[in-house]
Design a protein around this nucleic acid. Sequence first.
DNA 1: AGTTTACCCTGTAAGC
DNA 2: TGCTTACAGGGTAAAC
Length: 281
Amino acid sequence: MPELPEVEVTRRSFADRIAGARIVAAVPGKPLRWPLGLRPEALVGREVRGVRRRGKYLLLDLSEGLLLVHLGMSGSLRFVGAEEAPLGPAGPHDHFDLQTTGGLLRLHDPRRFGAVVYVAGESDALARKLLDHLGMEPLDGGFTLAAFRSGLAASRTPVKQLLLGGSVVVGVGNIYASEVLFLSRIHPATPAREVGPRKAKALHEAIRAVLARAVELGGTTLRDFSSANGMAGHFQLQAKVYGRDGLPCSHCGSPIRLLRQGQRSTYYCARCQKESRHNQT
DNA sequence: AGTTTACCCTGTAAGC
DNA sequence: TGCTTACAGGGTAAAC
């Protein structure tokens, strides 16, 4: 579910409310992708100083160490302040509760591809393994066209899969990858290094514009995503190609096609998004 | 070394 | 109505 916009919307929906709270209890449920990495009781008494984001990870800065939270495919967080109506007991798909003096942060994750991992610091070996290989932050100033182009030039992987991989730019998942390639009129199977300068510029702009717009709209809610406030997103209403196979392209009217790339679905318009030769421009 | 494949897990929807 | 299969917003490790 959660790509960069959903993770960022989640972060904004509880970061200010949890900041300054002290951990009262940490209660794991069923095993997630990785073990927590320390005894849950050891977290008690630490303060949550703030919440940052790196790619699709949330980083909860504690007075000592930090918690890395990843939502995987089906994860979502809920936060209810101490003054609000309590969330009640954990359900069958609630796999981590962080009880604090400021309220309860709960991870809901049916497929359990998500994770909550404690690391002593960002230079910790595990933290480095998870974070160091991540590419550029698309909404930061460091994500320049020149840097993006050199990232594309270094790979012959189909551009859709390179975007998904996160080694050049982070946060573009399966929904937004289809959308940005449609907007920049690039065929998803084009080898990354064959994306020409004009197309690369259009793609760079589309990534920034689409992700920023999706954050503004509260993310994409296809099935069950909601922010930590329980708010659904609305970007799905703007999707031009994702999930629309067989329906007419909004630009040219020809039917949107479905392509399988590395066991993931890609949606595109065969007429608007031509093959690599035409991407040279 | 770069690129592709298999797999982690559960729920839902489609096909028979 | 059931049973089986395929697929779902992600990411890693192992295999090419």
